[in-house]
Design a protein around this nucleic acid. Structure first.
Lengths: 262, 262
DNA sequence: CGCTAGATTGAGGTCAATCAACGGGTGTGG
DNA sequence: CCACACCCGTTGATTGACCTCAATCTAGCG
């Protein structure tokens, strides 16, 4: 607990660097938050909590992937969100001190900071900086949710897949013409609100357009091949946005056909 | 509690009663918020703001309905949310001081308090009570968005209509067997992510089950007729939930058939 | 009374789901 | 080392819910 320059463990210091909501907080506040908290690595399929449970902890993701999902009475599963590095998990239920409206499960081995909810709620009232950080984080979260609603409701299956690949490409940004698939294809399919069969068939359509489909990656025929799937959300992440180098400045996409840019 | 209220106009006092985010705030904070703000009645179809605009004001609804919507490049419209009494409009963009990701339009004549964004952001930093109120409001908003995602993704068209009617019934709660339709049917259809034709056909199926369909209201054959469309969200609003009087405690709904309870 | 916007009804088309079968990895046990 | 089971992903054939297009009806309103 007392090693390191700042009286925090190395794991905690790492968490401070990765989690935006902990940025710029006083040492006292951080100590209050870390009190009773833990940082653990959880294996795939580990349940963080189930719908209806009372929130004992606020989980923050340092690394890996967590899926938020719902099960309806017919037993079907819907993935509401995929969360990763820097995200909080179901913070709204923690703040409201109300039962979780969804379930959370580790989708790919994840390192997670878990803070007791009571501590979180106390610090919110006592430290305005923390409250402001949370408001900012929730605002971004809220915009992602809105973006998610939009993409389900007014994009076709093909568009959703192209858009998903494009966003991955912009997020990863290491190799300009390769997208790594971060988790199982069946999980991607569910996140994109389609069946694994449909996802497979859709990837095949991309293959016919010159994409190379691997087990856990997709390679583009040209660097800008996915620009036909750009929308305002993706544009905000793209370095070409607003420059003459952008082949699709108006973010126009065709419904069902794959249009390649180069 | 009410000593200082004389310093506010009657409209402002009314706003204080209706808007949860203004509850329990100091007189100074309220004055800061009201500085430069206005309370106006806006007619149907009035644009509050368009996607991409910079947020100059935070709008809070005192009465009436506002729709949040997106238009894609094909010109199709999707309604992301319908907001009413007590709701804030696109607060996330105001807090982030970023362009609106969506457009907002009055759907039914509305009285709206509009506060300059800069004032809002200043008060957030200076008054922790306000920040806490906002966190609470945003948390609820966030849960509604999640609920919305769920209902689109794992409910059929029939289920969405039944669920919508049930929620209206629970919200209104005046007459136990009548639901008033709060805005145009075509708007309801769009909110439920279906075409007006589909909505009409679906209502017809309800009619065949004994419902009376009027222009702006629906009358149930029995008080509990809609209980087959209950889910965790609706259950939280229902007075029968958890009592022996609930005919559908496990919130089981059938996909496409309308099952009546009585 | 006719005009217009919203709502209804009908006929036909389509995208994605469903059902079913198969292939290729991976792990286990003999 | 092989035989077998198992899971994930793929492929094919069919179905069905919802959309599309178009005609008709209704209600408000000048």
């Amino acid at each position: 607990m007392t090693d390191g320059l700042d009286n925090f463990t190395r794991k905690q210091q790492q968490a401070l660097e990765i989690l935006p909501v902990l940025k710029g907080l006083s040492e006292k506040t951080l100590h209050d938050l870390f009190k009773g908290s833990s940082i653990d690595v959880h294996k795939k399929s580990k349940d963080l909590f189930m719908e209806g449970e009372h929130p004992n902890h606020l989980h923050m993701i340092i690394d890996g992937w967590v899926k938020l999902y719902k099960i309806n009475s017919s037993g079907e599963e819907t993935i509401v969100q995929m969360l990763s590095k820097g995200d909080m998990v179901a913070e709204s239920a923690v703040f409201l001190n109300a039962p979780f409206p969804i379930s959370a499960q580790v989708a790919k081995e994840a390192e997670i900071l878990s803070i007791p909810s009571s501590g979180v709620r106390n610090v919110i009232s006592s430290d305005n900086n923390f409250a402001v950080n949370l408001l900012s984080a929730m605002s971004q979260h809220s915009q992602h949710l809105i973006q998610g609603v939009e993409s389900i409701r007014l994009k076709s299956a093909t568009e959703r897949v192209g858009w998903f690949l494009l966003k991955l490409l912009l997020e990863q940004g290491r190799v300009p013409d390769m997208v790594e698939l971060p988790y199982d294809k069946s999980l991607i399919a569910s996140y994109l609100d389609m069946k694994p069969e449909t996802f497979s068939r859709t990837l095949k359509k991309f293959k016919q357009k010159g994409f190379e489909i691997r087990k856990d990656a997709v390679i583009l025929p040209q660097v800008k091949a996915l620009c036909g799937f750009c929308d305002s959300d993706a544009a905000g992440m793209c370095s070409r946005h607003g420059t003459p180098d952008c082949p699709n400045p108006d973010c126009i996409s065709s419904k069902d056909e794959i249009i390649l840019y180069d």
